[in-house]
């Protein structure tokens, strides 16, 4: 990592090239990000080291108690295991639905393409609350999906809401539009003639997809994987609304600590742990991708 040297070099080059004034234009956004993003994160870390207090949010002092409490609690271990399992299932399902959809949107033209893209964009921009509410309505005992399942299976009453199934559906519904667009934006840069060439040379469609499209789409699929995984780790709305009390994720527990129990050091410590887990997972993922010698295209 020679990032800082790179930045310094680039800034120097830029100054030589254009004069100082234009780079000053970067100052407002950097200042804003520093004051309201970087500094608050340092305060979060500091907060996680404070002592807890029964009557107030925290006691000044330096201690690792919050971390010890959290990391040794079997209750938190359960939440951790649940969050990871859900994140893995969500990531797999998201990729399975996103890759064909993005591929279809890329190969389609005219009206079909517009409908496919419009749907993704509208879904992406729709607030999370509405999306989760939609599934509450659909999966509730009187909802369309439950009714259909009942009629189809002949079962009397199928429980579709307040379980792990509903949580996975909810998170996939939240992440899929982003995953689709991430894959789509990479697919559009592939030369479509390559596929025509593969087909002309006698490859079947699945074979052409597997040998030509998939290898070229790896950067988009990697971004989709990262988004699906990290966002399910941090999922809050879906587990609260579509799950039961046993579908508890990290984010739900953080909210519980900070808002309900007013225990800021524990909430801060768990937040720090989540961020660390997210970034360790990312590094591991990129190391894995990098070993397959395609990671260079990522950033």
């Amino acid at each position: 990592m020679n990032g800082i040297a790179d930045i310094a070099h680039s800034i120097q080059a830029a100054i030589d090239q254009r004069g100082r004034t234009s780079l000053l234009l970067l100052a407002p956004i950097l200042l804003f990000k520093t004051i309201f993003f970087v500094i608050p994160f340092f305060i979060l870390v500091r907060m996680s080291l404070h002592e807890t207090d029964q009557s107030g949010a925290y006691n000044p002092g330096v201690t690792l108690d919050s971390y010890v409490d959290i990391l040794s609690s079997s209750f938190i271990h359960g939440i951790m295991a649940y969050t990871f399992r859900t994140a893995i299932v969500v990531t797999i399902v998201t990729l399975l639905v996103s890759i064909p959809y993005a591929h279809a949107a890329w190969r389609a033209d005219g009206m079909t393409k517009n409908v496919l893209l419009l749907t993704v964009v509208v879904s992406l921009l729709t607030t999370l609350v509405v999306k989760m509410y939609a599934w509450v309505v659909l999966l509730s005992p009187i909802g369309v999906v439950s009714q259909a399942v009942n009629r189809f299976t002949g079962a009397d009453q199928v429980q579709l809401l307040n379980n792990e199934f509903a949580v996975v559906v909810g998170i996939v519904y939240m992440v899929a539009p982003y995953a689709i667009l991430a894959i789509y934006s990479v697919l559009v840069s592939i030369d479509e003639d390559l596929i025509d060439a593969a087909l002309d040379l006698g490859a079947s469609r699945p074979r052409a997809f597997y040998e030509v499209v998939l290898p070229n789409a790896v950067p988009g699929i990697a971004v989709a994987t990262v988004l699906a995984f990290t966002w399910s780790i941090g999922a809050y709305a879906a587990p609260v609304l579509l799950g039961s009390s046993s579908e508890r994720t990290f984010a739900v527990q953080v909210e519980e600590y900070v808002i309900s129990q007013f225990n800021w050091p524990h909430g801060a410590a768990l937040s720090v742990i989540i961020v660390v887990i997210v970034f360790v997972s990312l590094l591991a993922f990129f190391a894995f991708i990098g070993r397959r010698d395609v990671g260079g295209e990522m950033f």
Partner: peptide
């Protein structure tokens, strides 16, 4: 990539 709940907190 940082969970919105964490940014919120």
């Amino acid at each position: 990539l940082i969970p919105p709940v964490v940014i919120g907190i």
